[in-house]
Simulated scan of single mutants.
Amino acid sequence: MKENQSSFSIKNWSINDRPREKLLSKGKEFLSDAELIAILIGSGSRNESAVELSKRILASVDNQLNELGKMNITQLSKFKGIGEAKAIGIIAAMELGRRRRGEETPDKFKIRSSKDVFELMQPRIGELPHEEFWIIYLNNSNAVLQTLQLSKGGITGTLVDVRLVLKQALELNATAMILAHNHPSGTLKASEADKDITQKIKNAAGSMDIKLLDHLIVTEKTYFSFADEGLL
């Protein structure tokens, strides 16, 4: 019986099949998602290797890393072999990956379409469980000067101070702006409140010769553009 249980240990695998050794000898790109997670958690349980445990966790979210990134400590800890410390390790790694995608864009990144805005903002707000309202400030070549979180709200809404929007635009000498906020519900329909704040900011910015180019509603996988839909 002891021999059978020990066979689940990665230490008994061929060196070429062990995740850490495989990364060292072949490189990170040769590891599967499960093998990378196995390195994070370090060990499995008495009856299951770290890799098999990782495969089971991934299977529970249809092998989607985005969905894994949404799991909390309680959900992860339901898997035998995953305690609080291992759950925290997985969550921290997922968050680092999300932040890496959402790092500030390189200097002179130019906005050419609503798709560019979505690709810029989705890593920041597309998967959040609450609403956030952001402003993208641009120069006269539509190059990004700054992306700024203006407010953070609850599940159903967030507050926007038009004065803060314009104050930052003037400090940056921005000539154009794009608004962006997320809908945690996944709904792409613009609410009356969304339309009202868009018009309010457009009118206020226009009085200072600052153009409002677009307003995007961002979800995990897609977006709604006010400009594309003729609402500006």
Rank of each mutant, 00 (worst) to 15 (best):
S45F: 12
Q75S: 15
G69I: 05
L40C: 15
G42L: 07
E48L: 15
E67T: 07
G83D: 12
S43V: 13
E48M: 15
S45M: 09
I41Q: 10
S54W: 06
S77F: 00
Q64H: 11
I73D: 07
N63P: 01
D62I: 00
I41L: 13
G81M: 09
I82R: 02
Q75W: 03
N66A: 10
R46G: 08
G69M: 06
M71F: 03
K80N: 13
T74P: 00
N66M: 05
N66Y: 11
S77V: 02
Q64S: 15
L76V: 03
T74K: 14
V61C: 09
K78M: 10
S54L: 07
V51L: 08
L40D: 13
K55S: 11
Q64P: 00
K70E: 13
K70P: 00
Q75P: 01
S60K: 06
T74E: 14
M71T: 06
R46D: 14
S45V: 12
G44Y: 04
I57D: 01
G44M: 06
N63V: 06
N72A: 08
N72R: 09
N63A: 05
I57Q: 04
K55L: 10
T74C: 05
K80A: 12
S45I: 10
K78E: 13
G42R: 09
L76I: 02
I82N: 02
R46F: 12
N47T: 15
N66W: 08
R46K: 15
G81L: 09
N63H: 14
Q64A: 08
M71P: 01
N63C: 02
E84A: 11
N72F: 07
Q75H: 10
K70L: 14
S77L: 00
R56Q: 14
L65N: 05
I82H: 02
F79L: 04
A50M: 12
G42V: 11
L40P: 09
S54P: 02
N63T: 04
D62P: 00
A59Q: 09
S49T: 09
I82A: 05
K78C: 08
G83R: 06
A59K: 13
K70Y: 02
S45N: 14
E52R: 12
M71G: 07
G69S: 11
I57S: 03
L65Q: 08
I73Y: 08
G69P: 02
E52K: 14
E84I: 12
V51T: 13
A50C: 14
E67H: 09
T74G: 12
S77W: 00
S45A: 15
Q64V: 07
V61L: 07
E52D: 14
S49Q: 07
S45R: 13
